[in-house]
Design a protein around this nucleic acid. Structure first.
Lengths: 311, 311
DNA sequence: GTAATGTCTTTTATCGTGAAAAAACATTTT
DNA sequence: AAAATGTTTTTTCACGATAAAAGACATTAC
């Protein structure tokens, strides 16, 4: 089967939305930049748009003939990259329970279950290994280390170190830095969300990530910035998994963020430290409270790849 | 060609040395544990030893017929794993100069140059990406970020954070912990090396790594422990590359280590902090001084994959 | 009956291959 | 002549296939 054309399909869908908004299409190179794909892909998109009667296309002249209809779009599931498919599949198994620490991970079995080649699974596992949840035995299988209390504590320890440092660096940034405008915009978004928290509480997760990434970027340290990928991944799946008291939690977090933002704007290191610590403490509590007590490390020689894959 | 049998060849060589030392061979499972390979590989080794007249082998009876001769060993270069070959090749290019920041990395070209398949190169680059020196453009090439002054500063910033914390945790370990014996052994090795520094200064690098890994392990944090891989990699190649004043540098470092060890043994947090900071400071200086000033980030659109690969 | 050996099965590591996508080059249009 | 379009080449991504290595099962030895 070689390679799926999900890049083309995803870009096509995005191009349809663009067409709907602007009622016109720019030049090929410009479209490429806009969609983040090469001209080769842009031309495939334009070809199909011509075929399906969406546009008339002759060299530089692209005339919009009709607006996009629902059936013009490719199905959502065909626009995901293989890596995304594998990650979702893998995380579902991991969080669905029955995935105990010490368990073996079988590349071939995973590949068969998901319906993809082994190479893609291997590459995914290598990328995934930096999250500290799996470990490779040379010339042999991967071992699941488990989403345990210990993992959560180790993760938050680093997070707290990094964020305190980044927040301090942020507050020390010159007043004419562009980040203050970014912070202002985020503050507005926080206020809007706060005033409408009853219905929009599930939008917090995305705002949370943008806020913390902005702060971490102030560290100007690639290792700190990159580490937020680990946190984001864990929180992303954690939020999907543990919906208990989600509204309540997010309501508290939004208020903590607002206090944190105010502290940053004061540019007072002491205030920043206090607000940052307070928020990090409750973030840690949230994460820890979601980990089932039973999930402790098992004797390392248990082989449960079957159980793991069956989920 | 599929897979090379370097695991077998390397284990065979190590088994020859074992044979030379002990003049006998244990059971198959035991040999497997000793050499870190499966019984399948052990049996291949024994088969060859029988064929080449090293041993007589009949079920449980393994009689040593003669000692190993130089020609019995497989050549060193045939015992390296593909990953090691690729890493060395890649790092040589990286450090040989001409590898400027912003340059593109071409998987296919690298694979052809080294004479391996693209899959192995891809997997290597994914693994290598966690060192923060390269970055992937989705559906496109990798970009070299360069071994710049900025990189060294970011690396050492994290290192210092992690090591100070680990050292503090180390000093707080209960007196009956096994680490104190490990530390004592390392202290002895340091003293031996110090007294013979004129001839053995090049052995410091390996001792250095063992010492710092012992300290980092006290953090009980997988992210801290794993981060030492980044430091070790950089220092490993850095030492190979920059031999200037190596003896002088190592002599100083050994003394700093001894002071650091003494501080740890005092279990006084203040002393530990001072000794640790002092050593980290000079380690940072060493690294920084080895980075050519000219090596600054280039405009990001320079395409130099040819230059890169030619080295 | 435990622990070894002998045999067979499964999994991992690596390659070559082919389609998707990017990139480079050539030609035309404004 | 700058920027677009048209065409060709190169590279990335993903697969199936195959030998090496691990692992599982069966049998034998002590």
């Amino acid at each position: 089967m070689s390679k799926s054309n999900n890049v083309y399909k995803d870009a096509f869908n995005r191009c349809l939305r663009l067409l709907d908004e602007t009622q016109s299409l720019p030049s090929e190179p410009e479209l490429g930049t806009l969609l983040g794909v090469s001209r080769t892909t842009v031309r495939s998109i334009l070809s199909r748009m011509e075929e399906t009667g969406l546009i008339a296309w002759n060299k530089r002249n692209k005339t919009v003939l009709r607006g996009p209809r629902p059936e013009d779009f490719f199905p959502e599931e065909e626009t995901d990259s293989l890596a995304e498919i594998i990650e979702r599949s893998f995380m579902r198994r991991l969080l669905a329970g029955g995935a105990e620490a010490g368990m073996q991970i079988n590349e071939l079995e995973l590949a068969r279950e998901i319906g993809v080649g082994t190479t893609s699974v291997r590459e995914f596992l290598i990328r995934f290994s930096r999250f500290g949840l799996i470990e490779k035995r040379r010339n042999s299988h991967w071992v699941l280390k488990g989403f345990t209390r210990a993992f959560a504590l180790e993760l938050t320890e680093i997070r707290e170190m990094f964020e305190l440092r980044s927040a301090a660096a942020f507050a020390a940034l010159p007043v004419d830095s562009a980040v203050w405008a970014d912070l202002d915009r985020l503050e507005v978004e926080h206020r809007q969300l706060a005033s409408d928290i009853a219905t929009r509480f599930n939008e917090f997760s995305e705002l949370d990530e943008r806020f913390h990434r902005l702060i971490h970027r102030a560290s100007h340290n690639r290792f700190i910035v990159d580490f937020y990928d680990v946190i984001a991944m864990i929180f992303h799946y954690h939020y999907q998994w543990n919906k208990a008291e989600e509204r309540q939690r997010n309501e508290v977090a939004v208020q903590e963020h607002l206090a944190y933002i105010a502290a940053l704007k004061s540019r007072d290191p002491g205030k920043v430290d206090i607000a940052c610590r307070k928020h990090l403490k409750s973030a840690r509590q949230t994460l820890l409270s979601s980990i089932p007590e039973g999930r402790q490390a098992q004797p390392p020689d248990v082989t449960l790849s079957g159980t793991f894959a069956q989920a």
